[in-house]
C-alpha cells in the first residue's frame, strides 16, 4: 500500500541521502505565508554545510531559514527579495562577504523551478533584458524583441508547506500560502512536505500537487 505519511519529523528526514553537504534546497513560502519552517528547524541539527537555498526571501529572525543561515549551513542564497525588516542575519553575512547571493527576478525564479521540474533545461524571457540581472547571459531576438536565456533549476530537496495531504501524497494549499510550494514540489529529487492536516482522500478534482511529486510528509497541525 502506498503511504507517504510518516509519524514525525525524525522519520521524515531519516535515511534521506539527498539531505547532504552541498545540496540545492528549494524552500517554499512568500513572506511568512507557506514557509515549511518546522521542516527547516528539523534540518538545522543535521549540521549540513555548503547548502544552496532557493527561497523568495532570506528568512526572518533566527528561526527557520534565518537559523539555518546563522548556523553556517548555507553558502549561497538564490532569492528574489533577500531583505526584510528582520533579515539581519543574512544581511550581515552578505555585507561581510561570507555568503553568496544570486538575485533573480521573481517570475524568472518561479519559471526556472517550473522548467527544472518539467525537464526543460533553459528558456528565454524578456524579463531583465538590458539590466544588471541579465549581465553575462545569452540573449536572442524573437519576433523583433530581445530575450534573455535562463536556466532551469533542479534541486536535491524541496521543503514544502501544504494545508492537507492524503496517503498518496496529493496536496492542497491555503490561499496565498500556496505561492512557490507547488512548483518547488516538482523540481527536487526528494520532496519533503509538512502538512497541516492528513485527510483520508483529497477529491481528484481538488488536488493541486499530485502525489507523484511528493516523497514523504509529516503532519504539523494548524498553525497558531
Amino acid at each position: 500500500m502506498i503511504d507517504k505519511r510518516v509519524k514525525d519529523m525524525a522519520a521524515l528526514i531519516a535515511d534521506c541521502p539527498d539531505l547532504k553537504d552541498g545540496a540545492i534546497i528549494l524552500l517554499g513560502g512568500f513572506g511568512d505565508a507557506g514557509v515549511a519552517e518546522r521542516l527547516v528547524e528539523a534540518i538545522c541539527p543535521l549540521g549540513l554545510r555548503n547548502l544552496t537555498v532557493v527561497s523568495n526571501g532570506a528568512g526572518g529572525g533566527d528561526y527557520g531559514l534565518g537559523r539555518l543561515i546563522k548556523e553556517g549551513c548555507v553558502s549561497k542564497l538564490v532569492s528574489t527579495f533577500p531583505r526584510s525588516s528582520d533579515s539581519k542575519i543574512f544581511e550581515d553575512l552578505y555585507a561581510a562577504g561570507e555568503i553568496e547571493l544570486e538575485t533573480v527576478p521573481q517570475g524568472t525564479m518561479a519559471e526556472r523551478i517550473r522548467a527544472g521540474g518539467a525537464g526543460i533545461p533553459a528558456f528565454y524571457t524578456a524579463t531583465a533584458y538590458g539590466t544588471l540581472l541579465a549581465e553575462g547571459k545569452e540573449t536572442r531576438e524573437f519576433e523583433g524583441r530581445q530575450y534573455v536565456m535562463e536556466r532551469g533549476i533542479k534541486a536535491d530537496v524541496a521543503l514544502v508547506h501544504a494545508a492537507a495531504g492524503d496517503r498518496w501524497g496529493n496536496l492542497t494549499y491555503s490561499k496565498t500560502a500556496r505561492n512557490f510550494n507547488p512548483v518547488m514540489a516538482t523540481a527536487a529529487s526528494t520532496t519533503l512536505v509538512e502538512v497541516r492536516q492528513f485527510v483520508d482522500m483529497i477529491p481528484p478534482e481538488e488536488v493541486i500537487t499530485p502525489g507523484i511529486f511528493v516523497d514523504r510528509m509529516v503532519e504539523v497541525g494548524e498553525l497558531t
Binding site: A58, P82, R83, L101, T103, P105, Q106, T127, L133
Partner: peptide, 25 residues
C-alpha cells in the same frame, strides 16, 4: 521609457521581487 525602481547601489543586498517581470510583461 526606461525605468529604474529596484536598486540603489550600496551595501545592502540587491532585492528585485517581481518588478522586472511586471515592467517586461
Amino acid at each position: 521609457g526606461d525605468i529604474a525602481n529596484w536598486h540603489i547601489p550600496g551595501p545592502r543586498p540587491p532585492a528585485v521581487g517581481g518588478a522586472m517581470d511586471l515592467v517586461a510583461g
